[in-house]
Design a binder for these strands. Sequence first.
DNA 1: TTGCCATAGTTCCAAAACGAAACTTAGGGA
DNA 2: TCCCTAAGTTTCGTTTTGGAACTATGGCAA
Lengths: 112, 112
Amino acid sequence: MKWTELSDNWCPVARTLSIVGDRWTLLILRDCFLGLSRFEQFIESSGMTRHILAERLKRLVEAGILERRLYSDGPKRYDYVLTDKGQELAPALMTLKDWGKKHMPVRRATSA
Amino acid sequence: MKWTELSDNWCPVARTLSIVGDRWTLLILRDCFLGLSRFEQFIESSGMTRHILAERLKRLVEAGILERRLYSDGPKRYDYVLTDKGQELAPALMTLKDWGKKHMPVRRATSA
DNA sequence: TTGCCATAGTTCCAAAACGAAACTTAGGGA
DNA sequence: TCCCTAAGTTTCGTTTTGGAACTATGGCAA
Protein backbone atom coordinates (compact mmCIF):
# COMPACT_ATOMS: atom_id res chain seq x y z
CA MET A 1 0.00 0.00 0.00
CA LYS A 2 1.24 3.44 -0.82
CA TRP A 3 1.57 6.04 1.83
CA THR A 4 -0.57 8.54 -0.08
CA GLU A 5 -3.54 6.18 0.10
CA LEU A 6 -3.76 6.81 3.81
CA SER A 7 -5.80 9.97 3.23
CA ASP A 8 -8.98 7.89 3.25
CA ASN A 9 -8.03 5.53 6.02
CA TRP A 10 -10.57 4.81 8.74
CA CYS A 11 -8.10 6.04 11.32
CA PRO A 12 -7.82 9.78 11.93
CA VAL A 13 -4.18 9.46 12.89
CA ALA A 14 -3.45 7.88 9.52
CA ARG A 15 -5.38 10.57 7.69
CA THR A 16 -3.45 13.28 9.49
CA LEU A 17 -0.17 11.58 8.70
CA SER A 18 -1.07 11.38 5.03
CA ILE A 19 -0.46 15.12 5.00
CA VAL A 20 2.03 15.91 7.73
CA GLY A 21 3.62 12.51 8.25
CA ASP A 22 6.56 12.73 5.91
CA ARG A 23 10.11 13.84 6.31
CA TRP A 24 10.10 17.68 6.55
CA THR A 25 6.51 18.84 6.54
CA LEU A 26 6.18 19.22 10.30
CA LEU A 27 9.46 21.09 10.33
CA ILE A 28 8.05 23.65 7.93
CA LEU A 29 5.09 24.05 10.24
CA ARG A 30 7.38 24.45 13.21
CA ASP A 31 9.01 27.34 11.36
CA CYS A 32 5.62 28.86 10.70
CA PHE A 33 4.85 28.75 14.39
CA LEU A 34 8.20 30.43 15.00
CA GLY A 35 7.01 33.27 12.83
CA LEU A 36 8.80 32.47 9.59
CA SER A 37 6.87 32.79 6.37
CA ARG A 38 9.24 33.08 3.41
CA PHE A 39 10.84 30.55 1.15
CA GLU A 40 14.40 31.58 1.90
CA GLN A 41 13.69 31.62 5.62
CA PHE A 42 12.40 28.06 5.55
CA ILE A 43 15.45 27.01 3.57
CA GLU A 44 17.84 28.54 6.03
CA SER A 45 16.01 27.44 9.15
CA SER A 46 15.25 23.86 8.26
CA GLY A 47 18.17 22.87 6.07
CA MET A 48 15.98 21.14 3.51
CA THR A 49 16.52 21.56 -0.22
CA ARG A 50 14.62 24.13 -2.31
CA HIS A 51 13.29 21.31 -4.40
CA ILE A 52 11.59 19.55 -1.54
CA LEU A 53 10.48 22.75 0.16
CA ALA A 54 8.66 23.90 -2.97
CA GLU A 55 6.86 20.59 -3.26
CA ARG A 56 5.87 20.54 0.41
CA LEU A 57 4.61 24.10 0.40
CA LYS A 58 2.44 23.29 -2.58
CA ARG A 59 0.94 20.35 -0.77
CA LEU A 60 0.36 22.29 2.42
CA VAL A 61 -1.42 25.01 0.49
CA GLU A 62 -3.57 22.45 -1.32
CA ALA A 63 -4.39 20.88 2.01
CA GLY A 64 -5.54 24.22 3.37
CA ILE A 65 -2.91 24.30 6.09
CA LEU A 66 -0.93 27.20 4.68
CA GLU A 67 -2.05 30.13 2.61
CA ARG A 68 0.13 31.50 -0.19
CA ARG A 69 0.02 35.24 0.02
CA LEU A 70 1.36 37.91 -2.30
CA TYR A 71 3.50 40.21 -0.20
CA SER A 72 5.22 42.18 -2.91
CA ASP A 73 3.95 43.38 -6.22
CA GLY A 74 6.86 44.74 -8.18
CA PRO A 75 8.72 41.49 -8.43
CA LYS A 76 5.85 39.25 -7.43
CA ARG A 77 6.80 37.53 -4.22
CA TYR A 78 4.77 35.18 -2.12
CA ASP A 79 5.00 34.02 1.45
CA TYR A 80 3.20 31.40 3.45
CA VAL A 81 1.08 31.77 6.56
CA LEU A 82 -0.84 29.31 8.68
CA THR A 83 -4.57 29.10 8.16
CA ASP A 84 -6.89 28.40 11.10
CA LYS A 85 -6.68 24.74 10.17
CA GLY A 86 -2.91 24.99 10.28
CA GLN A 87 -2.94 26.86 13.58
CA GLU A 88 -4.74 23.94 15.12
CA LEU A 89 -1.71 21.76 14.62
CA ALA A 90 -0.02 23.70 17.40
CA PRO A 91 -0.86 21.12 20.09
CA ALA A 92 0.74 18.40 17.98
CA LEU A 93 3.93 20.39 17.62
CA MET A 94 3.91 21.07 21.35
CA THR A 95 3.66 17.41 22.26
CA LEU A 96 6.49 16.55 19.88
CA LYS A 97 8.57 19.34 21.39
CA ASP A 98 7.93 18.14 24.93
CA TRP A 99 8.83 14.58 24.07
CA GLY A 100 12.00 15.69 22.32
CA LYS A 101 13.10 17.82 25.25
CA LYS A 102 12.62 14.95 27.62
CA HIS A 103 13.82 12.00 25.58
CA MET A 104 16.16 13.27 22.90
CA PRO A 105 19.02 15.13 24.55
CA VAL A 106 21.47 16.92 22.26
CA ARG A 107 24.79 15.17 21.82
CA ARG A 108 26.74 17.87 20.01
CA ALA A 109 25.99 21.25 18.53
CA THR A 110 25.07 21.67 14.88
CA SER A 111 24.89 24.74 12.71
CA ALA A 112 21.24 24.54 11.72
CA MET B 1 20.91 18.36 4.50
CA LYS B 2 19.87 14.82 5.14
CA TRP B 3 16.93 14.12 7.29
CA THR B 4 18.84 11.76 9.56
CA GLU B 5 21.14 14.59 10.62
CA LEU B 6 18.23 16.14 12.49
CA SER B 7 18.94 13.95 15.52
CA ASP B 8 21.35 16.56 16.81
CA ASN B 9 19.39 19.63 15.82
CA TRP B 10 18.99 22.41 18.37
CA CYS B 11 15.21 22.07 18.07
CA PRO B 12 13.49 19.36 20.10
CA VAL B 13 10.76 19.03 17.48
CA ALA B 14 13.39 18.26 14.86
CA ARG B 15 15.08 15.75 17.12
CA THR B 16 11.79 13.99 17.75
CA LEU B 17 11.04 13.91 14.05
CA SER B 18 14.42 12.38 13.32
CA ILE B 19 12.96 9.23 14.83
CA VAL B 20 9.22 9.30 14.33
CA GLY B 21 8.92 11.78 11.48
CA ASP B 22 9.00 9.47 8.52
CA ARG B 23 6.45 7.73 6.49
CA TRP B 24 5.07 4.87 8.66
CA THR B 25 6.69 5.01 12.03
CA LEU B 26 3.90 6.82 13.85
CA LEU B 27 1.43 4.38 12.37
CA ILE B 28 3.31 1.50 13.94
CA LEU B 29 3.13 3.31 17.25
CA ARG B 30 -0.57 3.89 16.81
CA ASP B 31 -0.95 0.13 16.42
CA CYS B 32 1.07 -0.41 19.58
CA PHE B 33 -1.29 1.88 21.46
CA LEU B 34 -4.18 -0.14 20.04
CA GLY B 35 -2.67 -3.19 21.68
CA LEU B 36 -0.99 -4.81 18.71
CA SER B 37 2.48 -6.19 19.16
CA ARG B 38 3.28 -8.70 16.45
CA PHE B 39 4.86 -8.39 13.04
CA GLU B 40 1.93 -9.89 11.17
CA GLN B 41 -0.52 -7.72 13.08
CA PHE B 42 1.32 -4.56 12.13
CA ILE B 43 1.39 -5.69 8.51
CA GLU B 44 -2.32 -6.33 8.44
CA SER B 45 -3.33 -3.24 10.35
CA SER B 46 -1.14 -0.65 8.68
CA GLY B 47 -0.85 -1.91 5.13
CA MET B 48 2.86 -1.26 4.95
CA THR B 49 5.28 -3.73 3.41
CA ARG B 50 7.19 -6.29 5.46
CA HIS B 51 10.38 -4.77 4.19
CA ILE B 52 9.70 -1.33 5.61
CA LEU B 53 8.12 -2.64 8.78
CA ALA B 54 11.21 -4.67 9.62
CA GLU B 55 13.43 -1.67 9.10
CA ARG B 56 11.24 0.65 11.18
CA LEU B 57 10.91 -1.81 14.04
CA LYS B 58 14.66 -2.11 14.17
CA ARG B 59 15.03 1.65 14.41
CA LEU B 60 12.34 1.96 17.05
CA VAL B 61 14.02 -0.67 19.17
CA GLU B 62 17.40 1.03 18.77
CA ALA B 63 15.78 4.30 19.78
CA GLY B 64 14.41 2.71 22.93
CA ILE B 65 10.80 3.32 21.96
CA LEU B 66 9.89 -0.33 21.50
CA GLU B 67 11.24 -3.41 23.15
CA ARG B 68 11.75 -6.61 21.20
CA ARG B 69 10.54 -9.40 23.37
CA LEU B 70 10.79 -13.14 22.96
CA TYR B 71 7.30 -14.48 23.37
CA SER B 72 7.80 -18.02 22.15
CA ASP B 73 10.71 -20.32 22.55
CA GLY B 74 10.10 -23.32 20.40
CA PRO B 75 10.20 -21.48 17.14
CA LYS B 76 11.79 -18.30 18.42
CA ARG B 77 9.25 -15.53 17.94
CA TYR B 78 9.49 -11.94 18.95
CA ASP B 79 6.96 -9.21 19.46
CA TYR B 80 7.23 -5.53 20.14
CA VAL B 81 5.96 -3.54 23.08
CA LEU B 82 6.17 0.11 24.01
CA THR B 83 8.79 1.12 26.56
CA ASP B 84 8.05 3.93 29.02
CA LYS B 85 9.71 6.27 26.57
CA GLY B 86 7.41 4.99 23.86
CA GLN B 87 4.34 5.28 26.08
CA GLU B 88 5.06 8.94 26.46
CA LEU B 89 4.35 9.50 22.80
CA ALA B 90 0.68 8.92 23.57
CA PRO B 91 -0.12 12.67 23.80
CA ALA B 92 1.39 13.21 20.36
CA LEU B 93 -0.78 10.49 18.87
CA MET B 94 -3.81 11.96 20.59
CA THR B 95 -3.27 15.42 19.15
CA LEU B 96 -2.81 13.98 15.68
CA LYS B 97 -5.98 11.95 16.15
CA ASP B 98 -7.97 14.98 17.27
CA TRP B 99 -6.76 17.07 14.37
CA GLY B 100 -7.57 14.32 11.89
CA LYS B 101 -11.07 13.87 13.27
CA LYS B 102 -11.74 17.55 12.96
CA HIS B 103 -9.99 18.44 9.73
CA MET B 104 -9.68 15.30 7.66
CA PRO B 105 -13.13 13.85 7.05
CA VAL B 106 -13.32 10.49 5.32
CA ARG B 107 -14.37 10.64 1.69
CA ARG B 108 -14.90 6.97 0.98
CA ALA B 109 -14.39 3.72 2.80
CA THR B 110 -11.21 1.70 2.41
CA SER B 111 -10.38 -1.83 3.41
CA ALA B 112 -7.44 -1.13 5.69
C1' DT C 1 9.01 -39.38 8.86
C1' DT C 2 7.14 -36.57 5.60
C1' DG C 3 4.86 -32.69 4.40
C1' DC C 4 2.14 -28.60 5.41
C1' DC C 5 1.38 -24.51 8.38
C1' DA C 6 2.40 -20.36 11.05
C1' DT C 7 5.33 -16.41 11.94
C1' DA C 8 9.11 -13.35 11.51
C1' DG C 9 11.82 -11.87 8.89
C1' DT C 10 15.26 -11.17 4.18
C1' DT C 11 16.16 -10.55 -0.71
C1' DC C 12 15.41 -8.76 -5.26
C1' DC C 13 14.20 -5.39 -8.42
C1' DA C 14 11.70 -1.64 -10.52
C1' DA C 15 9.60 2.81 -9.43
C1' DA C 16 9.36 6.86 -6.80
C1' DA C 17 11.34 10.25 -3.75
C1' DC C 18 15.26 12.73 -2.22
C1' DG C 19 19.66 15.75 -2.23
C1' DA C 20 22.88 18.80 -4.29
C1' DA C 21 23.78 22.15 -7.26
C1' DA C 22 22.99 24.87 -11.17
C1' DC C 23 19.67 27.49 -13.68
C1' DT C 24 15.46 30.70 -14.43
C1' DT C 25 12.44 34.57 -13.85
C1' DA C 26 11.30 39.30 -12.61
C1' DG C 27 12.29 43.38 -11.19
C1' DG C 28 15.53 46.99 -8.09
C1' DG C 29 19.15 49.83 -7.59
C1' DA C 30 24.07 51.50 -8.01
C1' DT D 1 24.75 47.93 -17.82
C1' DC D 2 25.54 44.76 -14.35
C1' DC D 3 24.88 42.77 -10.09
C1' DC D 4 21.53 41.69 -6.34
C1' DT D 5 17.40 39.57 -4.11
C1' DA D 6 13.99 36.05 -3.77
C1' DA D 7 11.05 32.40 -5.28
C1' DG D 8 11.02 28.97 -7.49
C1' DT D 9 12.42 24.97 -11.50
C1' DT D 10 15.49 21.66 -13.71
C1' DT D 11 18.75 18.11 -13.92
C1' DC D 12 20.88 14.09 -12.49
C1' DG D 13 22.89 10.71 -9.44
C1' DT D 14 21.64 8.32 -4.96
C1' DT D 15 18.52 6.52 -1.58
C1' DT D 16 14.13 4.90 -0.18
C1' DT D 17 9.97 2.67 -1.10
C1' DG D 18 6.63 -0.93 -2.79
C1' DG D 19 5.50 -5.43 -4.27
C1' DA D 20 6.38 -9.99 -4.44
C1' DA D 21 8.90 -13.99 -3.78
C1' DC D 22 11.92 -16.47 -0.79
C1' DT D 23 14.11 -18.23 3.85
C1' DA D 24 14.32 -20.05 8.53
C1' DT D 25 12.47 -22.55 12.47
C1' DG D 26 9.80 -25.50 14.61
C1' DG D 27 4.76 -27.42 15.55
C1' DC D 28 1.55 -30.63 14.28
C1' DA D 29 -1.09 -34.05 11.70
C1' DA D 30 -1.25 -37.91 8.54
